[in-house]
Design a protein around this nucleic acid. Structure first.
Lengths: 199, 199
DNA sequence: CTTTGAATTAACCAACTGGTTAATTCATGA
DNA sequence: TCATGAATTAACCAGTTGGTTAATTCAAAG
């Protein structure tokens, strides 16, 4: 039983995301997506003219979600502390819901870095100047070249990587999935404190 | 012109690594690997009976390289400071030589986490106890549950992610490849200081 | 020179995969 | 009720891909 025509596209998009996230573009099969959506391949091509187009929509949406948190930190007017706290909390929570998202984006971006440009041309949100100013205002040492960039890279790394590398770190720490998830939740405050201590 | 039969296998393995690293298992093509090696597909299957077998060798080797640095930190007898300094320097350097390695491992591990087990059954090197003891000896607060794990996760994240996410962070920081590489090199000391400050 | 086993090649194949087509059903507004 | 366009299906297709086979070349040992 299908949902209303208008929302069918969205349903497909959601199911397709799951497949693409886990298997990547080349590993994903149109047949599998169609099966998941309970339609046949022809219907899939009726809603999305090609695998590439379907993938592009999934990828751009995923990238938007991923960059959303960053944009807020880089351009918002809130105090630096607040922005950092919000980013750490939001990113951890969001990524934990779709653990394969980060690995998917990195893997696809590795092969086709140009796919990023679509997100950069439009939105001007992606700019470090505002962030650097706020940092420098808090502590003068952040005026030095690359100091703000290092802080930013630290923040993102500390949040994203442990989620992305769960299949590696979880066995390494002898934690089952539940325990590792608890560990990740615990990290939110750990990371926040570590970062704020640098200000 | 081919190299000596014995080393041909290694040549293929190296070339295949490059392809697998960039395109993953499902994106890689036996034909492309054969072309790179200057042989035809039949020869490729002569040396490696299947794509899966060739991939397994590549993957296990990649994983070994990736875990090599970690093992040293976790089990060596050197002082903690030295081990940290060595890990940061080694990891950054090693990953920068094959930037696609980390994304490759994460992506494949996401789909087949069981591929990790091969590395874990044999070597007992992968154990945090030694590391935790050294940490606790330096600062008692690291006796608390998960404290050592957080430190470890921080260390790995700070080193690996900025290399892995180069296609994302490089444009975001308005750095070309050369400048971003310089930034990564600069991070070696930045990360080391940050970590040692936590002791 | 000949034997023998490894190295190499060209041709081939079956399965898979993205995509198409033409015909059919369904819903709805006139 | 009928006309119209969207939704859906089954069958099909051409290109790709991993893998095989049988025949051939090559190199070294006897």
């Amino acid at each position: 039983m299908k949902s209303l025509d208008a929302s069918t596209r969205d349903t497909i998009l959601t199911l397709a995301s799951a497949v693409f996230y886990q298997k990547g573009f080349s590993g994903a099969r149109m047949q599998e997506i169609a099966d998941l959506a309970g339609i046949n391949k022809a219907m899939l091509h009726y809603y999305f003219k090609s695998k590439e187009q379907l993938f592009d929509m999934v990828f751009q949406q995923a990238l938007g979600q991923f960059l959303g948190g960053i944009a807020q930190v880089l351009s918002g007017t809130a105090p630096l502390q607040t922005k950092i706290e919000q980013y750490v909390a939001y990113t951890t929570t969001a990524l934990m819901e779709t653990p394969a998202l980060a690995a998917f984006i990195m893997h696809e971006l590795q092969q086709h870095p140009e796919r990023l440009s679509a997100q950069f041309s439009d939105r001007r949100i992606i700019d470090l100047t505002n962030f650097r100013q706020q940092l420098a205002a808090t502590k003068p040492q952040y005026q030095e070249p690359n100091a703000a960039e290092h802080f930013f890279a630290n923040m993102v790394s500390l949040c994203v990587y442990p989620v992305l590398a769960q299949p590696l770190l979880s066995p390494l720490m002898h934690k089952n999935e539940a325990k590792y998830r608890a560990f990740l939740r615990e990290r939110t405050s750990h990371i926040t404190q570590l970062l704020l201590r640098q200000l």
